[in-house]
Amino acid sequence: MFDQAVAFWGHHLIMVGIWLTLTLSLNLINGYCGLFSLGHQGFWAAGAYAAGATVVFLPHGTGLNWLGFVLSFGVGTFVAALFGFLVGLPCLRLKGDYLAIATLGFSEILRNVVQNCSPLGSSLGLSVPNVMRDATGKIPNYFIYIALSWGMAGLTTILLRNLVRSSHGRAIQAIRDDERAAELLGVNLTSYKVLVFTSGAGVAGLAGALFANYNSFVTLEDFNFNAGVLMVVMVVLGGMGDLLGTFLATITLYFIPVLLALWLPATRIPVFYDPTQGGVVYSEIKNLWQVLFSVLLIVVVLVRPQGILKGVTLKWPKFSK
């Protein structure tokens, strides 16, 4: 019972750390630099597959397994950053909707290529041997992974906060606010945009490497379009370019479906009358969480389009005499 609870909540704590890293890095691209990207799941996938391939193709033996584990993080980050560089370079000329579609296009191309690449497991998925799992495939100690994933998220937060407050960060935000004015003031648009794409993608790749190593299995379904949409939603509802908001939005939006799936009863209710399928179609209320979640999403967008926390300043209450 206790073990099950540890496995359940441990898994979600690790995943939330990975998602935080993803949304924080997407926030650099979307929120701070204003480059609307819909292809972050592609960078995540690139990192995960590169890391997975490193572990799989490195010769197995004592000692080398740990080498592969450590090396895979570097390779995942590097490959995703390279991919981000390659995407960022041609996409410099595009803005707004067009940029969003181009980045989506790049991630779909990557997806299609992986789908047909048999060394990477095609559409079946890639098994990544994990040094931290015991013979039965269980993870003996979740806390290492929780520490790794939250450490990664924390490190990203600190790096991002420092970057944003530096002169480079101000240049990046100037690009978001008014590209032409920024250029006139001497901000090098090309190098900053490429830098933002490369570093954002690199961090997403790091998250991908952790995901591949922790999960021991990656398939393309993990990195589908809806995953990318969810990331963008988290960033926008957190208030673009707001670190605390991103944190809250990511944790909330990650746990809402988890809790819905956990708490909704398994009672079957009629959802549809379909004579072609033999009458009334039933569905468990438990399974309706996706529908509820999308309704919730639309409602939040309608009620607070500027981000859940935008305009709300969180301060310690001051008690004056």
């Binding site: 909707d97 809806n226 963008v232 926008v236 549809f272 179609v281 309706l288 996706q290 529908v291 639309i298």
Partner: peptide, 30 residues
């Protein structure tokens, strides 16, 4: 209601509607 809210927000709403219709169809039609 979102006509004046900017394009990114409207795009998000459209993505939300798309998710809702996919998930709704999965539940009703299988």
């Amino acid at each position: 209601p979102l006509r004046k809210s900017g394009r990114i927000v409207a795009l998000l709403a459209a993505l939300g509607v798309s998710l809702l219709m996919q998930n709704g169809a999965q539940q009703t039609f299988g």
